[in-house]
Design a binder for these strands. Structure first.
Lengths: 209, 209
DNA sequence: GCGGGAATCAAACAAGTGTTTGATTGAATC
DNA sequence: GATTCAATCAAACACTTGTTTGATTCCCGC
């Protein structure tokens, strides 16, 4: 392979950056684990910071590609589309069979933003927000002012993200065993039912597992 | 004052730790900003790590003292107690007149836990969780199984924490001006109303501002 | 077979890290 | 006034950091 070391560097760097953060990750550790020379990062990327933004960019693309957001046909009931939306978010977050550092790195960047944050919001978050707001347009009264519509969206997304960002809290609170029982479907069903009820809607039977 | 430098060290260290994280914060920067000698941290705390856990412990205590959780009298309607609970959380998070590094440091520790995390969960989170679960006991059907009760609690707390943890996203999504319009009361009202509706309850009029 | 450019390598760079030392201060105690 | 002990200080410690250099290897096109 041509740029094999460059690819190896990107992947292991992303893993370590996601795990420890930018400052705590050292180039030597990255290169050693990637079986590359220390000078390779300078040669291929310029410096540490450029390597970092490259990993963020990679994570962003990969994350979108691996579990693409399903097309939500306009004739599908809004409640069911909401269930699909929430389910896809949980899928992206908790699905264990893919490299987990992609989302991990992105969420770290979103919580403690550097210069790479804006790109994520623009390319990754914004489309999701638009998709959710389209769904909500059918579930909310037409005269609801814009700020309130945003808050409803935040209430839904906040529920989902909580399970990812605060895994340590949840584990310590309910115990490891109960945590393992939290499946993607269970959580997606709960959040969807909870949110639909908050909007005065019922959970459609055909999607409630 | 006797231990003035020790106190100064704790406060500026906590600020910097909260801002940059443990690894990225340097002892020299802390000491310079605290107007203390570099050896002072070794003298008063032992090493950098012990200084860090001391700041976390301080943040934890201060955070509880400054905005103590109000006693929720048992004869107050559960819906109103929920509004108070949510309001206090927002108060702790967004009230601008207190040093903000306390909660900032605690939430950083909760998202990326070190050894100090368990103590926070045990001494700070657990009591809050118990308080919320007591309120929910009156709002939820008595035969609801334990895991679902937890999920309802997470749905409520998740909504609240979202506004703190993901401030950067919110700002970029809705714009700076709209963000400034989000007051503690507005948000607490929304989250409470949303959650109560999800549980089939109405927002009590006397607390809806 | 041979030049030439891309890629890799060991080695060293200067700067910054946490930590430690040993001397110096200052105020309270006898 | 002498002693004592906690607190502070400048200086150096050994080590790691990101970065750079210059030589070496590798492989492709001529």
């Amino acid at each position: 392979m041509l740029d094999d070391t460059k690819r190896r560097l990107l992947n292991t760097a992303g893993q370590i950056f996601a795990d420890k953060g930018f400052e705590a990750a050292s180039i030597r550790e990255i290169c050693q684990q990637a079986e590359a020379n220390i000078a390779a990062v300078h040669y291929h990327f310029g410096d540490k910071k450029q390597l970092y933004v490259a990993t963020v960019r990679l994570a962003q693309c990969a994350q979108s590609d691996e579990i693409p957001f399903p097309e939500l046909p306009a004739d599908m009931p809004a409640a069911q589309r909401l269930r699909t939306f929430v389910g896809t978010m949980f899928e992206r977050m908790l699905s264990a069979d893919r490299p987990k550092w992609h989302l991990q790195l992105m969420l770290r960047e979103l919580s403690y933003p550097t210069e790479a944050c804006e790109a994520i919001v623009h390319d990754y978050i914004r489309p999701m927000a638009d998709s959710l707001r389209t769904i909500l347009a059918e579930l909310l009264p037409g005269d609801m002012p814009e700020p309130e519509r945003w808050q409803v969206g935040f209430s839904i997304v906040g529920q989902v993200l909580f399970y990812y960002v605060h895994q340590p809290i949840i584990r310590l609170l309910i115990g490891d065993e109960a945590y393992r029982n939290l499946t993607v479907d269970t959580l997606a069903d709960h959040v969807t039912r909870f949110s639909l009820a908050a909007l005065g809607q019922r959970m459609p039977q055909e999607v409630a597992s």
